[in-house]
């Protein structure tokens, strides 16, 4: 009887091992562990045994049953696992197929530049002032020390609407407008981005409409060295930490002294390249100390207050930064151009 049980065990384990799927395994289970199965039969035949043998055989039979049971379960688990894997394998996809596109637009490159500059000056305590694009002759010229008939008016051929009203030729009118609002009391610390207009024929380097950013600081004890320090800070943040700036004397009616400001070339580190035309320097700003007449006309006492102002062209900065070769791109809104300014 003992041998029979061993035999059954071996046989069952072999069949379990051979079972290829859950159904075959079930057959094995029924065949060996079922009510009519051979082990039950063995147990039933135990009456023929001497009473002393019975517990031994009983225990052995149970052990065999247990072993088979465990083998069945193990096999069952293995088969199920295989099934899952088969199913998943069948579900495999080509992960290199294109993803469902998310529509993304992006800001205009000029907006990128303007916002970057705004943020940079906001970080230095400036606020952003905006004003009218259709200006009075007074704010556009006279309040900036450009009386009627001033020779420098030639420098900016303007779009007049009437004798007194014109499209602003620069963002500088905001200097006078902002100062007037402060009623002679500093500090004033603003930057003013905006559209400006000049009577130029549109070509690769001219546009009758373009943008400017004006900066103005008026307070007691503002020094020209403060202008230099501020613009150096600005240049380093916009063009990289290694940048330096230099002042070249210049002339603007509304500042005195006036300077043009160059930044050391960010492409060649000042060694000379096509971007800086071999000079190592790139002109990006006009600046100066606010002319006392401008302060006075806007209600500030030039004996007590001094200030600096600066102006720059986002188009020029964008052209330098991104290597754009034609100013007309900014206003054609060709998507093949606009799309290039997505990346953060």
């Amino acid at each position: 009887m003992k041998e029979r049980l061993y035999e059954l065990k071996q046989e069952a384990l072999r069949r379990i091992d051979e079972a290829k799927d859950v159904k075959a395994l079930n057959d094995v289970r029924v065949a060996y562990l079922g009510k009519k199965g051979p082990i039950t039969e063995v147990l039933r035949g135990m009456g023929a045994l001497p009473p002393g043998e019975r517990p031994k055989i009983g225990a052995l039979a149970n052990e065999v049953r247990e072993v088979i049971q465990q083998a069945l379960e193990a096999k069952q688990a293995k088969l199920e696992q295989e099934e899952v894997e088969r199913k998943l394998a069948a579900e495999a996809i080509d992960v290199t197929l294109p993803g469902r596109p998310v529509r993304l637009g992006n800001p205009h490159p000029l907006t990128r530049v303007i916002e970057e500059i705004e943020d940079l000056f906001i970080g230095m305590g400036y606020t952003v002032a905006e004003g009218p694009e259709v200006e009075t002759d007074y704010y556009n010229f006279e309040a900036l020390n450009l009386p009627k008939g001033h020779p420098a008016r030639d420098m900016q051929d303007s779009f007049y609407i009437t004798e007194e009203i014109l499209l602003r030729t620069h963002t500088s009118p905001m200097q006078a407008r902002t100062m007037e609002k402060h009623r002679g009391r500093g500090p004033v610390k603003i930057i003013c981005p905006g559209k400006v207009y000049r009577r130029d024929t549109d070509d690769a380097t001219h546009s009758h409409q373009f943008t400017q950013i004006e900066g103005l600081v008026v307070d007691r004890n503002i020094r020209m060295s403060d202008l230099k320090g501020t613009l150096r800070e600005f240049a380093r943040k916009l063009f990289g930490e290694g940048r330096d700036i230099r002042f070249r004397p210049s002339f603007f009616p509304f500042t005195e002294p006036s300077v043009e400001v160059d930044v050391s070339c960010f492409r060649c580190e000042g060694h000379g390249c096509s971007v800086c035309k071999g000079t190592g320097w790139i002109e990006i700003l006009g600046a100066g100390m606010v002319h006392p007449n401008v302060l006075e006309m806007a209600g500030f006492d030039p004996k007590t207050y001094t200030g600096f102002a600066f102006g720059m062209g986002p188009e020029r900065i964008a052209m330098l930064k991104y290597g754009i070769d034609d100013i007309r791109h900014f206003y054609q809104n060709d998507l093949r151009f606009l799309r290039q300014f997505l990346r953060v």
Binding site: N106, P107, T111, L167, H208, Y331, N333
Partner: peptide, 10 residues
């Protein structure tokens, strides 16, 4: 999904 345009005022 929109791109920003800047067009002429005139």
């Amino acid at each position: 999904g929109l791109y920003q345009a800047i067009t002429y005022s005139l």
